[in-house]
Amino acid sequence: MKNIQYLVEKIIRKLAKEGETISFAESCTGGRIAAAFTSISGASEVLHGSCVTYSNNIKHLWLGVSNEILEKQGAVSRECVSQMLDGIQKMASSDYAIAVSGIAGPTGGTEFKPVGTVYIGLKTPFSKEVYHCHFKGSRDAVQEESTLFAIEKLAEVLEI
């Protein structure tokens, strides 16, 4: 957890210095990314907002994820996370966005999407990337690994 706090402090300082903002759309991480940011003083300068969009209906209503994507690709998909990124960035008017959707377990996995399958997206003013990850371990471990991965990718993009 210490590594996350260190990275988040540096991210907040860099975004604040640049006058840039960030927002989050989280599913399987349940708000852990937002919690990592709000635990640091100064987060209010850069964090525009965060949504925990756990159900497909809320992903559709709040973030504009199409029902066709949810029905054909599923909530745990590159396409869904891509639309989550667009939706949260538009709703929050932020420069950067992170979106996460996955199967933390121990139930919910399938042959094609086993427990630990997580899609993590990062949208910047100049790019959008969605990563397909597979984490091992308990529900808590999958959530923590997903949170750390998202924050580390943001730090990489910001060259921290």
Rank of each mutant, 00 (worst) to 15 (best):
M1G: 13
M1K: 07
N3E: 15
N3R: 14
Q5P: 01
L7D: 08
E9G: 09
E9C: 01
K10R: 14
I11Y: 08
I12L: 06
I12C: 00
G19D: 08
T21V: 09
I22R: 04
F24S: 10
S27D: 00
C28Y: 01
G31H: 04
R32G: 14
R32Q: 15
R32E: 13
A34S: 14
A36S: 15
S39Q: 13
A43S: 15
A43G: 04
E45F: 10
E45G: 02
V46D: 09
C51P: 10
T53C: 05
N57H: 04
W62F: 13
G64E: 01
S66W: 06
E68K: 01
I69M: 05
I69L: 08
L70S: 05
K72W: 02
Q73D: 13
G74M: 06
S77V: 09
E79N: 08
C80V: 06
C80W: 10
V81T: 05
Q83I: 00
D86C: 11
G87C: 04
I88F: 07
M91T: 12
A92E: 10
S93P: 09
S93E: 13
S94W: 02
D95M: 08
Y96I: 00
A97R: 00
I98V: 05
V100S: 08
V100W: 03
G102L: 04
G102A: 04
A104E: 06
A104G: 00
G105F: 02
P106E: 07
T107I: 11
T107F: 12
T110K: 06
E111R: 12
F112T: 15
F112E: 15
P114F: 06
G116N: 07
I120E: 04
L122T: 11
K123W: 02
T124P: 12
T124G: 12
F126D: 14
S127L: 14
E129Q: 15
V130W: 02
V130Q: 02
Y131D: 11
Y131C: 09
H134P: 05
H134S: 01
F135M: 04
K136G: 08
R139L: 01
D140L: 13
A141Y: 01
Q143P: 03
Q143I: 11
E144M: 11
E145F: 09
E145C: 12
S146H: 04
L148K: 14
F149V: 07
I151N: 10
I151Y: 12
I151S: 10
L154P: 11
E156M: 11
E156G: 00
V157C: 12
V157H: 14
